[in-house]
């Protein structure tokens, strides 16, 4: 009987904790937005973060985009060929990349490449009491440390996702046209006929902006909120990766059903 009560109590504690953290996260987000002014007026703070989250992610994004596009073309051709429509390979590659794979896979890579680093950096600053020291010097740590990292992520994510999609299409072209021998004219013209700029590409960009904001918010929040010990820091980093991946996939489902359901 006592054991059962304990289980129920544990469940209650978990739910309360989850609600409390969500509320704290929302208040943190509002605070972050209110203190964002400085990161926009003192541009070099944000530019430094753009370098760390954007420029240093270039290599992994380019290489993975290329390989995802190449695999997509290989597997897609196999199936399309069975129905005698191998020419539609360009459509398959471009639509799946611009609508889904570009934003989602780039977002997952971005979370594990840049988001994790942000959590570790802020968490370590908190553990070594640098954030408190800043507060003592009347420097707001949210304006000085958190907001630039957040905006750096929000700005670099759509650029990385666009690069990922472009590299994927290039990879698909490489395998489809150069290696397999799909007709080049059909590849591009069918792609251009099927992919709409506003409907497909811009919706992909909107998705990547949303994912960038979600991943960056989770990363800075977990760092700022971590228990200031070595173990707390490692748990915060783990939570960043897991929560961002789940957030990206869940948001992608919601956005896709809002954007593309019942249309074409």
């Amino acid at each position: 009987m006592n054991g059962l009560l304990n289980v129920v109590r544990l469940l209650g504690a978990m739910v309360t904790e989850a609600i409390w953290r969500t509320g704290f996260g929302a208040r943190f987000f509002i605070l972050l937005l209110r203190h964002s002014g400085q990161s926009l007026t003192r541009v070099h703070l944000t530019i430094r973060e753009l370098y760390f989250s954007g420029v240093l992610s270039l290599l992994i994004i380019v290489v993975s985009g290329l390989f995802v596009g190449m695999v997509l073309a290989m597997q897609g051709y196999e199936t399309l060929q069975r129905y005698g429509s191998g020419d539609a390979l360009g459509v398959l590659v471009a639509l799946s990349l611009t609508r889904e794979l570009g934003p989602v896979v780039a977002g997952l890579l971005f979370a594990s490449r840049a988001g994790l680093a942000v959590t570790a950096e802020i968490g370590l600053m908190k553990t070594t009491e640098q954030l408190d020291a800043m507060d003592m010097m009347a420097v707001n740590p949210i304006a000085r440390v958190v907001a630039p990292r957040f905006w750096g992520g929000v700005i670099s994510m759509p650029l990385l996702a666009a690069l990922f999609s472009a590299m994927g299409v290039f990879g698909g072209w490489l395998i489809g046209v150069v290696l397999i021998g799909v007709d080049e004219g059909a590849f591009w013209s069918q792609m251009q006929a099927a992919v709409d700029f506003r409907f497909d590409i811009m919706n992909g960009v909107v998705k990547s902006v949303v994912f960038g904001a979600a991943v960056s918010l989770i990363a800075v929040f977990e760092g700022y909120d971590c228990t200031p010990t070595a173990e707390g820091l490692s748990r915060a980093i783990t939570r960043t990766v897991v929560t961002s991946a789940l957030a990206i996939l869940a948001l992608d489902f919601v956005l896709t059903s809002l954007m593309f359901r019942g249309q074409s």
Partner: peptide, 21 residues
């Protein structure tokens, strides 16, 4: 960073002109 932004914008332009209509 400028280089990064140019590459990202270039990718978007490529998507708009060559992939999209």
């Amino acid at each position: 960073v400028g280089f990064f932004v140019v590459i990202g914008m270039g990718a978007l332009l490529f998507l708009a002109l060559k992939v999209g209509n």
